[in-house]
Design a protein around this nucleic acid. Structure first.
Lengths: 143, 143
DNA sequence: CTAAACCCTGTAATCGTTACAGGGTCAAGC
DNA sequence: GCTTGACCCTGTAACGATTACAGGGTTTAG
């Protein structure tokens, strides 16, 4: 268990590219790490765990702003936990809405695809359907 | 049925912002329209339908590149229709994969949310779970 | 005759990540 | 020694689609 990792080793261990790590630092999600005499970043175990937190949040689809809020809660252990629940619940609802929308899109697209019987573009039902604006979402309220 | 619409009226009729219309033109999805003496764009009925085509494609989640390919097919009526079917089918598979991934994310997030019993951030299970890197997607192959 | 609403161009922002360019540092091998 | 390659640094630009300006000109209605 070392206590000083350079950014490349952190990248390997966390699955997070060096560019992203520097990006998180610039955005304030990570504190500025110590530097070697040559200016190389040196990370400790806590930084590794913080990056793991961020990556786990990202893998769940959370945006960096939400992750920053969750990190702030974690940095202030006396804060009420309700805010974390709000963020997660809000994101879950967001995900569910997006799933529903994508499912509607997929269903519509499935119909479009099944209409294609081959032949020339002039007769292509896919292209015809796209020109048919009676099916656009803006007129059916599915956006 | 007029035969000369300015960009604002086209925007109203198609539900597509003037900025987007100019953007589509710059990208080559729309031909450069005629201009008034003062330089205002004047669109005809065919342009309206072409914009409708683009919007319908976008509402299905197609990217502008795919839409451009479909428009190119439409512009060459003798082309084989198979390419259109390829584009639509490929996009449908893409949608289905994305839906599956989002559903897995939502399921995981639902578990996380249910762990929150209130209280202080120090004890918050949401935050604890995010720190727990044994659950990150990179280690479970769900990315 | 003036104010509001429209149009023009070009540029920059959004989000998260990646890919450079241009330069410095460090290890291993010859 | 000296080179080669793998690192690291900073800053900037790209991706995709859209939105939001700034700074200027035109039309239209009161």
């Amino acid at each position: 268990m070392k206590n000083a990792y350079r950014i490349g080793e952190v990248a390997t261990r966390t699955g997070c590219s060096p560019e992203s790590i520097r990006h998180y630092e610039k955005l304030g999600l990570l504190p500025a790490p110590k530097r070697s005499e040559q200016g190389y970043r040196h990370y400790d175990q806590a930084a590794l765990e913080r990056i793991g937190f961020i990556r786990h949040g990202r893998s769940l689809g959370l945006d960096l702003h939400s992750i920053q809020e969750l990190l702030a809660l974690s940095d202030h252990p006396d804060t009420d936990c309700g805010a974390a629940d709000d963020i997660a619940t809000r994101h879950l609802q967001h995900l569910e809405a997006r799933i529903a929308k994508l499912q509607a899109l997929a269903a519509e697209l499935r119909q479009v695809v099944q209409q294609c019987r081959g032949g020339k573009a002039a007769d292509c039902q896919i292209i015809q359907t796209l020109y048919d604006h009676t099916h656009t979402c803006s007129e059916r309220g599915c956006g």
